[in-house]
């Protein structure tokens, strides 16, 4: 336990009794010549919220985007090392990234609903993945997703209105509903509350905690308080390196690495 704090990638990882959903080994990301992520080893477990924290430009978002291969879209980005989802290589040439993204959903920093109706926003994913054979089945999926996202009560009567007309917090929950409508196994969240006010943030955080029952959640956050509130496990990144990883409670009370301590006590970041 003591030993892995200093050199996280050279030692076997603590595995707990939980099931590992996503596991990263020696993951490096290059943007052109620049090495943005250096040899990251990290396990993310089922029904847990894993928070990725660290100062800006530390590589936490880059790592998150590796998990559903959103980095494929950036020209000049290349990923090495191994990333496994349930033991299956995410970067397998045979694996269609489109199918991967149906299993690994994503919620973005800024709420980005499609400029379509609320219903269409949620129905889009199930539709392109052929998850419903009839209109009733589709309705069912849309309703349960909105329900799970805690939005149904607020929008029940205006499903045909534009998703962009909602408030910021509602928009973000709509985006979460949209993501869970394709019933993914993992949900990635890239600073989901950074554009929201405190009340909306509280609601989303509550929602994240509930969603943990059914999904594996990985969340990038700027706010340490948020990481402490929602996550069970925290990983601290600095300059493209994974510095420290551990149980959230432990990490915030007794950080092992001086950089981690500096960051959580607000000396830099």
């Amino acid at each position: 336990m003591n030993s892995f704090a200093n050199t996280p990638h050279s030692k076997p990882l603590e595995t707990d009794r939980r099931m590992v959903k996503v596991s990263a080994r020696d993951v490096c990301v290059r943007y052109g010549d620049k090495l943005a992520l250096k040899h990251v080893d990290l396990d993310m477990e089922c029904n847990q919220v894993t928070a990725l924290i660290g100062p800006s430009g530390c590589g936490k978002s880059t790592f998150l985007r590796c998990i559903n291969r959103m980095n494929d879209l950036i020209e000049g980005a290349s990923v090495s090392g191994s990333l496994m989802l349930d033991g299956q290589d995410i970067y397998d040439r045979e694996l269609d990234p489109v199918l991967l993204r149906a299993r690994v959903g994503m919620v973005f920093q800024k709420p980005n609903p499609f400029p379509k109706s609320i219903y269409e926003n949620v129905a889009y994913g199930p539709r392109i993945h052929g998850m419903a054979n009839t209109r009733d089945e589709l309705d069912e999926i849309v309703m349960t997703s909105l329900e799970k996202a805690g939005l149904l009560a607020e929008v029940k009567d205006r499903l045909e209105e534009s998703g962009t007309g909602l408030s910021g917090g509602q928009q973000q929950r709509l985006c979460i509903a949209r993501a869970i409508a394709v019933s993914p196994e993992v949900i990635l969240m890239d600073e989901p509350c950074s554009a929201l006010d405190p009340i909306a943030t509280a609601k989303v955080e509550e929602l994240i905690d509930e969603l943990r029952q059914n999904f594996t959640i990985v969340i990038v956050t700027h706010s340490m308080q948020q990481a402490a509130r929602v996550s069970q496990k925290t990983a601290f990144f600095h300059l493209g390196e994974l510095i420290e990883v551990g149980e959230t409670e432990e990490m915030f009370t007794t950080p092992r690495h001086s950089l981690t301590q500096g960051y959580i006590t607000g000396r830099f970041g």
Binding site: N68, L73, F108, K110, N112, F114, Y124, G125
Partner: peptide, 22 residues
């Protein structure tokens, strides 16, 4: 805006679906 493309891609739409649907 690129955020629309990202949203659709994140849901598992293929590149062509992103373009044609959104």
């Amino acid at each position: 805006p690129p955020s629309i493309r990202q949203a659709a891609t994140g849901l598992g739409a293929s590149k062509l679906q992103v373009v044609l649907h959104h």
